[in-house]
Amino acid sequence: MRYFILLFAAMLMLCSEMRAQQQQEPWNSNQLMEPENLANRINKNQTANLLILTIGPDALIKGSVDMGPAQEAENIDKMKGYLKKVPKDKEVVIYCGCCPFDRCPNVRPAFNLLKEMGFKNAKLLNLRKNIKVDWLDKDYPINE
């Protein structure tokens, strides 16, 4: 019986910790864009109302604009300057792709900036592992 109580307590703690972690992220699940979805839109030329920004090591995705890694303050300034000219209702999707989100130093500062600047249609590309596995290996469109 004691074992079950302990197990139950441990599970409860784990659940609440997971929830706390989820709540800490600046984005919600509706703001995650699936790579397949973006690749389809690029392939069908349906990106006129979409701005794709890389906030990581390289602008690999076709049509994306390079802001530089967002963990560096100068790149955040660059992104701020670039976004000043962009209408706030424009759909903006950012991606890094160095590694999973829990280890990425770039996605949070960049997504927070989009929120601070009032972009209502901000998205984060859901590259679960990295840009190699979740984009390149799938032969999705890239900047040559």
């Binding site: 090591p57 390289d58 690999l60 590694c99 990295n130 190699k132 596995v133 390149l136 890239i142």
Partner: peptide
């Protein structure tokens, strides 16, 4: 060449 480097393919690297 970032992840486009042929060496990543030769060594089947999926992550660093």
């Amino acid at each position: 060449m970032f992840w486009k480097s042929p060496v990543a393919k030769d060594y089947r690297i999926e992550e660093l």
